[in-house]
Design a binder for these strands. Structure first.
Lengths: 233, 233
DNA sequence: TGACCCGATTGATAATTATCAATCAAAAGT
DNA sequence: ACTTTTGATTGATAATTATCAATCGGGTCA
């Protein structure tokens, strides 16, 4: 692992709560692995063996049922996934696949649970992490139930624009069909949603999206802090 | 509070983790209140002041955005809500209203956080509770994204039937329009979904639903353990 | 460079779901 | 018991979203 990546992992809210020694113990037990794009890392229904940390690349969390598939979330560096399943020692509800060449840190579930028992600040950080994840999922649920697909896309674009520096340009983090599934629609529908947003100054060319007039798009999107904003702190 | 209700609260997984003294301290600081039906207990966007425990009655968690409204969850005795917002000391993402004459225990947020700091088993129980809530919300999200409305209803019915004792009869826990919102559809659409399920042996009369042939309904519903089953333990 | 492949887009159509309006039925209050 | 109210149902229609098929276009690779 590159030094800066290791530092980024250490700097995760979750791991900042750990003392140096406890952190080192976790890392000693962990496996650093590289994967090409398109590798299924986890299949739902498997037992939770490892907490996963995305050090580099992109991981798609997805779920299937009776032949249908949807994207739940995208995990980018430095982010973790499968914490809830690891803690409850249960099967995964989601599958995971790499979307790009990726580097992952796999921490044995048992070690995570042991560290939690031994280090109170770590357990406290886990509480905060889980509460955040829960609230973030509730926001997703609200977006799905209260908005049309074009509105979901518009608000996703506004948030991505802000997170990517506010230049009015967005680089999509994945293929459009994955974004479509993430937002709860078909690829065709996403294409048409983009087309309809051109009336509000949205132009999409390949993986680059340009927003010419933020306030015009915002008027249409009607962003709601209780759906679109991340929790503070 | 009736003696048996008090015992039921004490018996919640979350509170079983507390010692008698710590539990008593929480209860001393808590308020027991009765509410008629239709009272809004919490409005989203308010600061999280109390952890709420439903001792009696029914509470609907709902969310609104720009004039639209949907139901997120129903809380029945003995259940709690708003834990994540309380722990993160953030605003609520959901509103809450009573659907029936209800009795609630309001525990000051600050006391909950203090108890968590002082009692390790309580914090551990909170971790498990949050992980469960998160996973349960992921299940909901999958159901919404992977199923049609009739399928969601069919699977909801199968689960309700099992939880209510497996008699083939279900008593709806709320008005149909609330169930409709819970399942992510309009009341009219729910009516039609019920009508279409009559082909699989579902008869609905008022708040009673009868399923004449579980396996036939199950064939249509295609229940998926990773969506419909509660976490074990 | 050119053939090929895969994802994106577009068009046509179908399925699903929502909306609006009009009863209908059942529960609540007088 | 009788209004009165409110929620449920049904019908007609519209909007939204999905599906299927065809084409387009950018990127890859020999």
């Amino acid at each position: 692992m590159r030094v800066e990546d290791a530092a980024a992992v250490r700097d995760l809210t979750l791991f900042r709560s750990l003392g140096d020694e406890a952190f080192a113990q976790l890392m000693d037990a962990a496996y650093l692995q590289r994967f090409p794009p398109g590798v299924v890392l986890i299949s739902e229904n498997e037992r939770a063996d490892f907490l996963h940390v995305v050090v580099e690349g992109t991981v798609e969390m997805f779920a299937t049922s009776h032949g249908r598939e949807t994207t739940i979330e995208l995990i980018r560096p430095v982010g973790l996934f499968l914490l809830a399943a690891v803690l409850k020692d249960q099967i995964y509800l989601q599958s995971a696949r790499t979307l790009a060449k990726s580097q992952l840190l796999l921490i044995p579930a048992e070690k995570v649970r042991m560290a939690m028992e031994r280090e109170l600040p770590f357990m406290r950080a886990i509480v905060m992490e889980l509460a955040s994840d829960y609230r973030s999922t509730i926001r997703d649920l609200k977006s799905l139930k209260l908005r049309t697909s074009a509105e979901r896309l518009a608000n996703w674009l506004l948030r991505a624009e802000a997170e990517q520096g506010g230049s009015g340009q967005i680089e999509l983090p994945c293929e459009k069909r994955t974004l479509a599934a993430r937002l709860g629609m078909t690829p065709e529908n996403l294409s048409r949603a983009f087309a309809s947003l051109s009336a509000y100054g949205v132009q999409s060319k390949g993986s680059i999206v340009a927003i010419s007039d933020l306030s015009r798009l915002s008027d249409f999107a009607a962003p709601d802090p209780l759906i679109d904003e991340r929790d503070p702190s």
